[in-house]
């Protein structure tokens, strides 16, 4: 492992030897993988202690979070907690406190687990990700970042630089719930995040996203479509459940079963819709 110490030096290294180096920030994923023998003699380049990657900036209408910000950084940020509560809630789910002091938002996204805790919140907040290399910077919707199981849009010389979030959801009804094998230090068997507006009893704008139901964290566009413009009735809840069941593709694995994940994700959606109907969104 090497630690060039600055962003430019890391980017130059990646440009010089594209694909040869694996960036490591907090190491909470890579060190476990190494100990378990799943990471054969990697060449690691450290992103730890690079201030240019660890920042949280909040403006009037948006927030920018450096990729090397830790989950404790997120949890400690009062403005994020007020404007993007789902993301801060998700940050509290990551591993243990010790993990949260090392694990970074960027690491969570680049690792690309379909069960990643931060992903559903970012999807329902319409996040964008900013990628950086010696060639320059580019921004893409986060929804397009994951291109397949553990694959993403980063070129071999690129780093994830920052996550950008529009802060325009304070009037939305917001929901997030994770179903893990226990209350702390668990990988999500299922998770659902939602933001929605209810106007005169009719669902306006709605975004739904789930973890652990597909090879990548997933926006549930069909379930959203089944609800947009409709009141929350038994019929629309049923239609939304069925749309969700049709678009999720969970798997059986060591942590749970596909059938459990499908049904519980639908139950979470129903729980959200009942809350939305009961409490509405803010006027």
């Amino acid at each position: 492992m090497i630690a060039p110490g600055g962003l430019d030096a890391v980017l130059e290294l990646l440009a010089r030897e594209p694909g040869a180096w694996t960036p490591i920030a907090g190491g909470t994923e890579l060190m476990v993988a190494f100990a378990a023998g799943r990471l054969a003699a990697p060449k690691l380049v450290s992103l730890w202690n690079i201030p240019a990657l660890r920042f949280i900036e909040t403006g009037a209408g948006s927030a920018a979070i450096g990729a090397a910000s830790t989950f404790l950084d997120l949890r400690a940020h009062a403005v994020l907690a007020a404007k993007l509560p789902l993301l801060v809630k998700a940050a509290s789910w990551i591993g243990s406190i010790a993990n949260q002091s090392r694990a970074t938002l960027g690491g969570n996204l680049v690792n690309g687990s379909p069960a990643a805790d931060s992903s559903p919140a970012l999807l329902v907040y319409d996040a964008e990700v900013e990628l950086i290399s010696v060639r320059g910077r580019r921004r893409i919707p986060y929804a397009e970042f994951h291109t397949g199981y553990k694959r993403n849009a980063l070129a071999t010389d690129e780093l994830l630089y920052a996550v950008h979030l529009p802060c325009r959801f304070t009037r939305h009804k917001q929901y997030i719930r994770k179903v893990g094998a226990r209350r702390a230090m668990a990988v999500a068997k299922a998770a659902l995040a939602a933001t929605a507006l209810l106007r005169d009893g009719v669902v306006g704008e709605i975004r739904l996203a789930a973890a652990s139901v597909a090879p990548v964290p997933t926006r549930l566009y069909q379930a959203e479509a089944a609800l947009a413009g409709r009141p929350i009735t038994r019929q629309t809840v049923q239609a939304a459940r069925e749309a969700l069941l049709a678009e999720v593709r969970p798997i059986d694995d060591i942590r749970s079963t596909a059938e459990y994940r499908r049904r519980v994700t639908a139950n979470l959606l129903e729980e959200f819709l009942l809350e939305l109907r009961r409490e509405g969104s803010r006027p």
Binding site: R234, L245, Y260, R262, N267
Partner: peptide, 22 residues
């Protein structure tokens, strides 16, 4: 008794699309 087994006992026999609490 993990949730997956309780799931099998409690709800697996019911149609998945059917609202659970309405």
């Amino acid at each position: 008794l993990l949730p997956e087994e309780l799931f099998a006992e409690l709800v697996a026999h019911m149609p998945a699309g059917e609202p659970a609490a309405l």
